[in-house]
Amino acid sequence: MKAQTTSTAQPRTLVLTGYGINCDNETRYAFERAGARADIVHINDIIETPSMLDGYQIFSFPGGFSYGDDTGSGKALANRIKNNLLDEFLAFVGRDTLVLGICNGFQVMANLGLVPALGGFRGDAEVSLEHNESSRYECRWVDLAVERACPSVFIRGIERLHIPIAHGEGNFYAPEEILAAIETRYLACMRYVLPDGSPANGVFPHNPNGALHDIAAVCDPSGRLMGMMPHPERNILPTHRDDWTLRREHARRDGVTLPEEGEGMAIFRNAVGYFR
């Protein structure tokens, strides 16, 4: 059952910024386009006034380079939250709220223990996003298949996604028993696949980073907290896809028009739809 306070047509969304986060503008745009009321808020302002979290239903960790990835991606920002806002985050996720972390946001969520949070959120990392197997930053478009049985509210109704990744540390790692639990509880929301939908099986560049089990996104058992390496907010306009000129050419000859928005929008529409 949803709490009364969250049943609003325009869920209030906090898009975090500060210390090198850099996908805040496009993430806000995607949420607003989906119908949310989104604010970009600096981490220091939350630390100064933690009670502001009470007014939000969605918390978003956008992509970026928080603290320049120094000491390991996502670690320093996770530590900043752990050292200053742990109780407030426990309270936030204790309500019927959503948390979405994209790229660096996923790295922060993983270090903070927000995903997979197998035994509930306690502030301890259970998984890691390690250096890409290429040991290099990779910016590429990837194909993703969505786990049907996954409880994530963000992926409802989605089967496949074609969106870009851009990261140096997206190589998903979990110890054997954690990985087994993620699989048996269907918490691996998305996996890298070949363009035809068959498993990438770790093969570069389809699996762009060497992630175990081709895992690109993970959620908590409630499905309300999700972290993903690929960037859905970078495929929201019809001119975003890497092959949009080819698709336009097909559309011209078939006498049809291109879809009005990119498929990444589905993630944000699901988030907003959760509160409708």
């Binding site: 503008n25 745009y29 290099r136 910016c139 001119t239």
Partner: peptide, 16 residues
């Protein structure tokens, strides 16, 4: 080089 330089951030990429 193109792959290691993020050209999709800010979601303004169009002709890549």
């Amino acid at each position: 080089i193109s792959h290691q330089y993020d050209h999709e951030v800010q979601a303004n990429s169009c002709i890549k």
